[in-house]
Design a protein around this nucleic acid. Structure first.
Lengths: 110, 110
DNA sequence: TCCGCTATTCAGTGTTACTATGTACCGGTA
DNA sequence: TACCGGTACATAGTAACACTGAATAGCGGA
């Protein structure tokens, strides 16, 4: 991944993680692995953990410690009602931006 | 506009400005006004000027001073060959991100 | 015992957009 | 002449966020 992607992820990575959590609860290491599998190859643990702490402090997710067979206990995050509201707002913002960008891309090719 | 949009613009605003310049040359004040008209209501001059200086220093645009009837001389920016390459890369990055987000949005609604 | 994988944490850095303010040029008007 | 509003650019300071790099810790297998 390049610098452009790094900058573009600012403001969208958070929404992506919340969207992942809206499908089903997950923990940091797992979320990171999933993102990397989907092509975001240099999203690293540190980034996701910091993000999870932020959304937790803002009250968008609930946390539960679950023991793991393979290592230290996992912190499993669940999207709560406030998080769902915030996620909806995220999609609205994203859609607005995506529409304008589509328009720009289209204009450019004429 | 909210905080979400502010964060999302990091990494996309630059591409948007370059896309505007790829259609036709323009100057800072004009670009700002156009963005604001299109709904990016709190993009301010200072932001765009700083961005234009950055892309100029990276050699993505050419600059020409043009006298104005209504005020101080305008700095008219034109996208050059290197800028076009960079813009193509921007669109590739954007498309990749947009596809994954569409997928996430879709998954979420099942 | 040591290594590799799982899993979390944290201090430090760089980039970017916004805030707030200042400078400067011009035309119109009182 | 003096002032004001609109045009146009510049810049120091701040906040937010993703990445770097390193540390800690638990578990199983060679």
């Amino acid at each position: 991944m390049g610098k452009q992607m790094t900058e573009m992820l600012k403001g969208t990575l958070e929404g992506m993680v919340l969207a992942i959590l809206s499908v089903q609860p997950a923990y940091g290491y797992e979320i990171t692995a999933r993102l990397r599998e989907q092509g975001f190859s240099d999203v690293v643990e540190g980034t996701v953990y910091a993000l999870l702490i932020r959304v937790e402090q803002r009250g968008l997710v609930d946390v539960e410690k679950v023991p793991s067979e393979k290592g230290p206990p996992r912190k499993v995050y669940t999207l709560n009602a406030q998080g769902r509201e915030y996620l909806e707002e995220f999609w609205r913002t994203w859609s607005f931006l995506a529409e304008r960008l589509e328009q720009l891309h289209h204009d450019e090719e004429e």
